[in-house]
């Protein structure tokens, strides 16, 4: 699980720089939540592109998340990146006024997609490419909103477990307050990732590393001493969220079909 943070920083900053230049962009844009992942992504982008070429969009829902708003602004200030605050409450409230629900998950997903929508709008306004902030842990267990926070143009941190993101954060000088606070998707007040998933990130990442990187069977992981129902829960989460990690399947009718046998690289003509 341990990483050489300096080496990883070098790869990821080069990745951001190269992908942007291939796509013809100078600037990157990302959502700043005040949490660990977006702070690390912003720091990498600032080092890769220069702080003047990074835009952090802070998108609170009304005044509900005061301390996080402060943290997000702090991150932008420390990194000297451009920051803008856009309140998504008017858009989200207008929708739920006509389509009311009592389910916090529905509201949370709508908010995540509203932020995505704002990000893509500012991406076009500012000619800035959207940097994803999802880490390997949440991608694997599907802890993200499809077409919401999972939407991006490139994902520099998608192969780093949360534990490794924290290690990288220390190397990048992210303030301790942000590194140590309980991770939260911020879909509703008081929500924490670990509370909702029912596992600590330390244990979750440990199990994932055995299952995914080590290619061990769930039975072998349990034999290592991990609790059976926790391992099984993680396996269920991974299987159940594959749809969030792939393009939707296309029914093959013709002799050459996108995704089946019309196969070009993502970096085609870049």
């Amino acid at each position: 699980m341990k990483i050489n943070a300096a080496f990883v920083e070098k790869i990821l900053t080069a990745f951001i720089k190269e992908e942007l230049s291939k796509c013809g962009f100078k600037k990157g844009i990302l959502g700043l939540s005040g949490g660990l992942d977006s702070a690390v992504c912003a720091a990498l982008a600032a080092r890769a592109l220069g702080p003047k070429n990074v835009i952090g969009l802070i998108m609170p829902y009304g005044k509900g998340f005061g301390p996080d708003l402060e943290d997000a602004r702090n991150v932008a200030r420390i990194l000297k990146i451009d920051a803008r605050t856009i309140d998504i409450a008017p858009m989200v409230d207008a929708y739920f006024k006509k389509n009311p629900t009592g389910k916090p998950l529905l509201k949370g997903n709508k908010m995540a997609r509203e932020r995505m929508s704002v990000l893509y709008d500012w991406s076009a306004r500012e000619k800035a490419l959207i940097l994803g902030t999802s880490n390997k842990t949440e991608l694997l267990i599907g802890y993200g909103t499809i077409h919401g926070d999972l939407a991006c143009a490139i994902n520099p941190m998608g192969d780093l477990y949360k534990t490794q993101v924290r290690e990288l954060a220390t190397h990048l000088g992210i303030p301790e307050r942000i590194r140590t606070k309980a991770p939260s998707a911020g879909l509703w007040a008081g929500q924490t990732d670990e509370g909702e998933i029912g596992l600590t990130y330390a244990e979750l990442d440990d199990i994932l590393e055995h299952l995914v990187d080590g290619r061990e069977s769930p039975r072998e992981v349990v034999a290592r001493g991990f609790t059976k129902n926790r391992v099984e829960k993680i396996v269920r989460l991974i299987r159940g969220s594959e749809f969030k990690r792939q393009m939707p399947p296309i029914a093959k009718i013709s002799s050459r079909t996108i995704g089946h046998d019309f196969l070009y690289p993502f970096d085609w003509d870049k």
């Binding site: 990745f15 190269e18 992908e19 993502f266 970096d267």
Partner: peptide, 8 residues
């Protein structure tokens, strides 16, 4: 060296 489709 370089990147292609995320491969390093």
């Amino acid at each position: 060296v370089g990147f292609e489709d995320g491969a390093v």
